[in-house]
Write a protein that binds this DNA or RNA. Structure first.
Lengths: 231, 231
DNA sequence: CGTTCTATTGAAGAGTATCAAGCCAAGTGG
DNA sequence: CCACTTGGCTTGATACTCTTCAATAGAACG
C-alpha cells in the first residue's frame, strides 16, 4: 500500500510504485536492463551478495532493486562506494577475490555471470564490451565521488547525491524514491545519520526540496539551486 | 548509443576473452615501465598536460616523473584523485573529452598514445590489455581512496598515504621521496596544508616516521604501527 | 646574505560528530 | 479498531577534529 501524502503537490508523484517502474524503464544510457544471459537470483533486503575476501567467480548485473557495495575499517566504520541500480554491473574484480562487500538494499533481482572466458566470448563479446563500459562508468563515478568526499560540505553532498540519483533513476518528474536508509546515505556521503538528516531538513526549509511525511522520497523543487550547490 | 565504448576508440580491442586476460594479468603488467610504443614528451614541473573539457585524443603513460590528475569546484576547491608514477597510465576516457585536469608534479617524461583503434590493435593488443588493466587498478585505488576520504582521520590518512607511496615507489628501504608539496598532499587527502603538516609532525613525534631537514622525504620507522592506523 | 617559497606552529572559529531525547510511520496483538 | 511496540528519522546540546587566519621558521637559489 502506498503512502497518502499530506501535501497536495506531492500526492500524484508519490502514490505509485515509483521504484519498480523506474526499474522497468532504465535510462537509455545504461545499456538495457533487459540482460539476456546470466542466471537470475533474487535477494531480499539486506541479504549479503558477497563479502570482501570471497572468491570472485561471478559478477552481477542488477535487474531490479538496489544494491550497495562497501568497505569496512577494522573498527566498523563503513564506506559505501556505490549504490547499484537496474542495469548497473558490479562485482567485477581484477584479482581472485572480491575487494568489498555487496548487499541488497531493497529486494533485488540480479543476473549472475560466471567469469569464465567463454561466457564472455559468447554473445559476440557484447557482454565483455558492456563490462568494460561499466567499469569506465564506475571509475568516473568514483572520481566524482572523491571530489564530493574530499571537498564538499554536508549540504553540497546531499544536493549532489539527490541530483545524481534523480538522473540515474528514471524518475517521474523531479520525484525520487529513496530506496536506502539515512544510515546508508551517511556511509556513502562520509557523514553521520544526524548530519544527513540535518542537511536534508535544511534544504527542505530553504525550499530546494520537498519530502513526504515518511521522508523516504524527495521532490527536487529547485534544480538550479541544487546544481549550484553541487557545483 | 548502446555502449560508451562506441565513442572511445577503444572498442575494437575490447572483445571476447580480452577482458579476462587483462583481469588475470593485472598485476604483473604493471611492472614494465619500459613502454615501447608512443611518442615521448617531456613536461616541466607544474606544466599542464591536459585540462578538463579538452578533447581526449590521446592518453598517457608515465615514463619518469610524477603526474597529478584533479578536479576543481567552481570556487577553486581542488581534489587530486591520483598521483601517477612511472608505469602508470592516465587520461583514458570513455567520452570525447577529458573529465579532469592533468599536470606534471615533477619534470615528467610521458609516452603519448593516440586513441585510434589501429594504434591499439597493433602490438598484438598488448597495449589494449594494459589499458584495461590500468583502468581496473585506477578503480581499485579510487575505491580505497573513497574509504580514506569518507571515513579516516587526518593521521590515518597520512599513514595510509605514506604506506601506499612506499609500496608504489621503488623505495630504497623504507625511505620515500615526497615528490609533491604539502598542498598537493592536502588536496589529495581532503585536508588543508596545515592539517597535513600537523599530522606528519605528530607521526614523527610518535616515532612512526622520520623526516630530513627539508621535509621532502620520509622514512617509515614503524610500519606495523602505520598499518594499524591505515587499518 | 637577502629573497622567495614551502613548511611549521599557534590561536581562534566553523562544521560536523557525538550523545541523548523525542517523534512519527508502520507493524503487532489484543 | 485501537493501544502498544518497533525501527528509522529528526532535533537539541555539547564536544571535538579540522579549518581558518596569522605569524614564524627553514631551505633553496641567486
Amino acid at each position: 500500500m502506498q503512502t497518502v501524502l499530506a501535501t497536495a503537490g506531492l500526492a500524484p508523484v508519490f502514490t505509485t510504485a515509483l521504484l519498480n517502474d523506474a526499474v522497468a524503464q532504465a535510462s537509455p544510457l545504461r545499456a538495457g536492463a533487459e540482460t539476456r544471459g546470466g542466471m537470475r537470483r533474487i535477494y531480499e533486503a539486506d541479504a549479503e551478495i558477497f563479502a570482501e575476501g570471497d572468491r570472485a567467480t561471478t559478477f552481477y548485473k542488477v535487474v531490479t532493486g538496489v544494491v550497495r557495495t562497501y568497505k569496512l575499517l577494522s573498527d566498523g566504520r563503513r564506506q559505501i562506494d556505490a549504490f547499484h541500480l537496474p542495469g548497473d554491473i558490479f562485482g567485477v574484480e581484477a584479482g581472485e577475490e572480491h575487494r568489498f562487500n555487496a548487499e541488497a538494499v531493497t529486494e533485488a533481482k540480479l543476473a549472475v555471470h560466471r567469469r569464465e572466458p567463454h561466457a564472455l566470448a559468447g554473445d559476440d563479446g557484447m557482454l565483455a564490451r558492456e563490462v568494460v563500459a561499466a567499469m569506465m562508468r564506475s571509475l568516473e563515478r568514483a572520481q566524482d565521488h572523491m571530489l564530493l568526499l574530499g571537498r564538499k560540505s554536508a549540504k553540497e553532498r546531499i544536493a549532489t547525491f539527490l541530483l545524481g540519483l534523480s538522473q540515474r533513476m528514471a524518475s517521474r518528474g523531479a520525484a525520487i524514491e529513496l530506496p536506502m536508509s539515512r544510515a546508508d546515505m551517511a556511509d556513502h556521503l562520509g557523514l553521520t545519520v544526524e548530519s544527513v538528516s540535518r542537511a536534508v531538513t535544511q534544504l527542505e526549509r530553504e525550499g530546494l526540496i520537498e519530502l513526504p511525511p515518511n521522508r523516504r522520497a524527495v521532490v527536487l523543487r529547485d534544480v538550479r539551486a541544487l546544481n549550484n550547490l553541487a557545483d
